[in-house]
Design a binder for these strands. Structure first.
Lengths: 351, 351
DNA sequence: CTGTTAGCGCCTTCAT
DNA sequence: ATGAAGGCGCTAACAG
């Protein structure tokens, strides 16, 4: 109907076939204020007939919103971030906006490169999961950037940028305390990427508890995603003179590879060594034993971040600057989900 | 540096602070052909100093590419689609483009609504996982749309639109045959959403084999995502006079809820009933027993779809129309990954 | 209520 | 090698 040969339909086309002026057509398109019902109908008919689609670029050029929000995060495929993204996307749709997605792979250069690419599209706002929460490149970007930014999962330290986090420190504390209450004394804290903000916070929580209890710090943050390397890492720890009696894994993937390694080493959970992980995952309750975890309210994080961003966007520039959003991060509490791997529910009859 | 008060930097600003004409500045920005080295340098300095960023909207308005690709799929959070999206995104970056993401929830209205929103951003091309492969609304959209479209995972029948699929029929056939070879005779085919193209193809494969073998068709496509409903569904089947001796699940989530239900019903796999699922998932090999599955080459699908799309985009309009891309869908083969749940490797020593 | 007009920032002839 | 000028499609002032 409108594809072949024909040049793209413009407002002018609509106006002429409707027999009205361009401005009138424009008004008709945008809600139709100050347009007589009859003309409105005529214009709408022309629009349908021609298959007219407003040219977004032209509107933007005029100075309006682009109705897009840039989303920059480590990975789309990671279920954690995918959940946040989905939730954020829903909020965006509610505000008639779309998400432009870019990934950082937790790599600084990739991050800055893709951020630049993002910015060319002039998003109205930015949702960022910073790869490095202290890196000056991001700080200075945020400082000089005119677009509102909200970070989630991790902050950009010293940027004055609103962020939505979960209480990693407190959750790690609670988790470690729980392990202690089970009577474990040698708790191995296991994970990778020790430079990430979230990991550091969790480590801090673990440390805090262990030091208060005057128990030895057993920390190994050399874990890679590789299952085989986890086997040798764990074999080494388990073969020591004083092996750990419990393992606290610092994230999702660490929990999984640790579980797999333990399984392969035929180490029984929790009788030989207990396991408690940060981050829930779909099959955590289906594995045997079911894995106890710290559960983060993912959807809430993504949703809240998006809401915060749109709150800034929708606030008309004229409003009182006193109502400036608090710079204090929004922090969600985490939940300790107790299943079997930590030693809980041992008495319970079934699995 | 550039945030406060100051209006956004334009090419004119660059030109004036560099002391050159706008046109020259423009040339300098775009590769710098026909610009003396000295002026080039001056302009570049001005660009850096001012923090100039080309206004994408203006470029688009001039008729250029938007350097964006629309991605419309059922869900971002679904690991299957997330993997495809990530792969597609990488290809897009290689072509200096970004992904604009919209979701359909497999719902026709949501799909068309979000598609319309997508189109306003004038993407150079579209990557679509159609919710309904036969729905006329999409067909007519594709027909009338001027932007290149590639679908993946599912086709849009009768649209002449290139698509990237996996061989669902053949894989389901192979899987069912494998079950037969184990000696199972009463194979229950279990899943939900029987209207989806992929599900139908898999059902067709199952049917084909069972009918050839003159074995009874046991099909239940009423499964929802809910674990509890799966328990009652399976309990019912298992309690029948002639219960199934094997279950072939039609997708990822069905496999998981079936496994969970079986586990809760204390039905032993594979001795009481064997299990084989369509779609691999992260912990399939970690569950006990490890689940045998049909594995789809997800990344390949996403990547290939994006490549096909850019092949169309990069093909300059002038080139011979004879080289028009084949309308035959690209079909990837699937792999049957045999683990324990189907009864394989029972003799093997360990787990 | 409606039409006319002036740009938004950029690229691209066309002169110089 | 460079500058001036027009127009991409749209909206917001301003006239009528």
């Amino acid at each position: 109907m409108k594809k072949s040969g024909s040049h793209p339909i413009t407002l002018a086309d609509v106006a002429s076939t409707a027999g009205v002026g361009i401005a009138t057509a424009s008004r008709a398109v945008n809600g139709g204020t100050n347009v007589s019902p009859r003309t409105l109908k005529r214009v709408q008919a022309a629009i349908r007939q021609l298959g007219y689609l407003p040219n977004h670029a032209a509107r933007i050029l005029k100075g309006g919103r682009t109705k897009t929000v840039g989303l920059l995060m480590p990975s789309i495929a990671d279920s954690f971030f995918a959940s946040c993204a989905e939730a954020a996307g829903e909020i965006a749709r509610l505000h008639d906006s779309l998400l432009i997605v870019a990934v950082s792979n937790n790599d600084r250069d990739t991050e800055m490169g893709n951020l630049a690419a993002l910015m060319r599209h002039r998003p109205d706002g930015l949702l960022i999961v910073p790869s490095d929460c202290a890196a000056k490149h991001l700080v200075s970007f945020v400082r000089s950037s005119a677009v509102p930014i909200v970070t989630f999962d991790r902050p950009i330290l010293g940027s004055g940028c609103p962020s939505v986090l979960t209480d990693n420190f407190e959750a790690a504390r609670t988790a470690t305390v729980h392990l202690l209450e089970h009577g474990y004394k040698r708790i191995l804290c296991l994970g990778g990427e020790p430079d990430l903000f979230t990991i550091r916070e969790r480590l801090r929580g673990y440390r805090h508890v262990m030091e208060s209890a005057k128990l030895p710090l057993l920390i190994d943050t050399t874990l890679s995603g590789n299952a085989n390397s986890a086997v040798s890492t764990l074999a080494r720890h388990l073969a020591g003179r004083r092996p750990p009696d419990a393992i606290f894994t610092l994230k999702n993937s660490a929990t999984i590879v640790a579980f797999q390694a333990l399984q392969r080493l035929k180490v029984s959970i929790p009788s030989d060594v207990a396991l408690l992980g940060f981050d829930d995952f779909e099959l955590a309750s289906t594995l045997r034993p079911a894995i106890s975890v710290v559960q983060q309210p993912l959807e809430n994080v993504g949703r809240k971040a998006a809401e915060l961003l749109f709150a800034q966007l929708d606030r008309t520039p004229g409003s009182a600057p006193s109502s400036k959003l608090s710079i204090e991060p929004v922090v969600f509490a985490n939940r300790l989900v107790l299943r079997r791997s930590c030693g809980c529910k041992m008495r319970a009859g079934s699995l």
